[in-house]
Design a protein around this nucleic acid. Sequence first.
DNA 1: GCATACTCAAATGTCAGACATTTGAATGTC
DNA 2: GACATTCAAATGTCTGACATTTGAGTATGC
Lengths: 235, 235
Amino acid sequence: MSRPLSAAIADRLSAQITGGELTSGDRLPSEADLADHFDCSRSTVREALKRLAARNLIRTKRGAGGGAYVNRLTFDAAVDAHVVTSTLLLSMNAVDFETAAEARFALEAACTELACANRDQTDLSALQAAHDRLAAPCDDEAFCAADVAFHRAFVDAARNPILSYQLAGAVEAMQPLMNAITYAERDRTEILALYTQLTDALSARDPNQIRHVLRELQALTIDLFHRASARRKSR
Amino acid sequence: MSRPLSAAIADRLSAQITGGELTSGDRLPSEADLADHFDCSRSTVREALKRLAARNLIRTKRGAGGGAYVNRLTFDAAVDAHVVTSTLLLSMNAVDFETAAEARFALEAACTELACANRDQTDLSALQAAHDRLAAPCDDEAFCAADVAFHRAFVDAARNPILSYQLAGAVEAMQPLMNAITYAERDRTEILALYTQLTDALSARDPNQIRHVLRELQALTIDLFHRASARRKSR
DNA sequence: GCATACTCAAATGTCAGACATTTGAATGTC
DNA sequence: GACATTCAAATGTCTGACATTTGAGTATGC
């Protein structure tokens, strides 16, 4: 029995869902029925169902009319999963900082044109609000959270949910790495100045200026990182 | 008991892994020990472990010296997960084609600069190979596979694994939607001509030309889609 | 001394049956 | 018609058992 039965059952059910045979809102048979159908015990079926639940493919309800229902995958849930995976990937694979920063800013630059074309007054407000929180005196954790909010506000300005979803992974997964910088480097005025320029450029719908600021931001980020690691090494 | 115990246990273990308390290669206690520690039955622990396994956080081995080991998340596994999630997200949320295409080509454009800077002879060969497979007479499925290979070769030319990982979701998740086009639209010469231009532009390290071709590709893709759906409606 | 075969114990994988708990729906009462 | 009661269908959990896998130690044969 090389492959556990519970995994095989999970695969078959999962294929039915991803393949469209079972669609959002459908109810799976009860655990007892599934056990009967797959000719195994209820525990085995349960383990299979837990695998699906962990991947957000189903949700289970107790009581009468309960059971396992095919989940509609929401953007929020997908973003969460993507962020977790990306973070883990970075932390487990010794990706060097410059590669990560390069990817991050390249992806962010991908939003430039669309953000200029589609940005709204609410986007500018969100950007400004995040900027204000960054400028106010705050602890490192709050600063980082506001930093993420700033970048997400920029991405969201493109008004393309797919793009926002894809980039959330890149932006938020960098957070632990960025933390290493801001925790060490207390002088945040340089970053803030560039953020101001970015906000202004988006307000003016000036893609070239945005690209310019992003390049500078990337250079500054990498520079800060090198300064931080040099200081760490010298101790 | 609002939240199932098995889910709570899964959360706690998962937090230990993502939080770095348990790192790649570490062995979790045996199911019996965990059951003892969490003061619950072995079945409940098992359901929690299956949840972790489904998310690729652990792998389990049977026999002596077996048990649950913290998995090292590989790029391949992360890409797979990302593609599945992205595909599901698109199929379950009635995203209109133009939004998806817009996101896809914006992301692809994000690779332009890096691809021009870092592209290698092997990248050009991979691109050419995919192009050849596209040009040869082949069935729709093979055409689509080669199409994906072409786009991934372009992305990989940026030589940034993080970027490749992020974009795999966008490129492959579009596949089902693209299928709808190529299956209907047999004339592939237009696409192939643009692909040739893209290959040449990358060979010449000409970012402006690449951006131009990508814009044309996006326009063509959307146009093909409209033609296909108009034809579908007229029947 | 070395290779092979055997045994053993520690784990996970599976099963069967039981009970607890939740919850919507049917039913009954006023 | 509004409210309380009962019921049955599910999931959630527990217990104990057995099957299976597998590495490590041990014995055997040469």
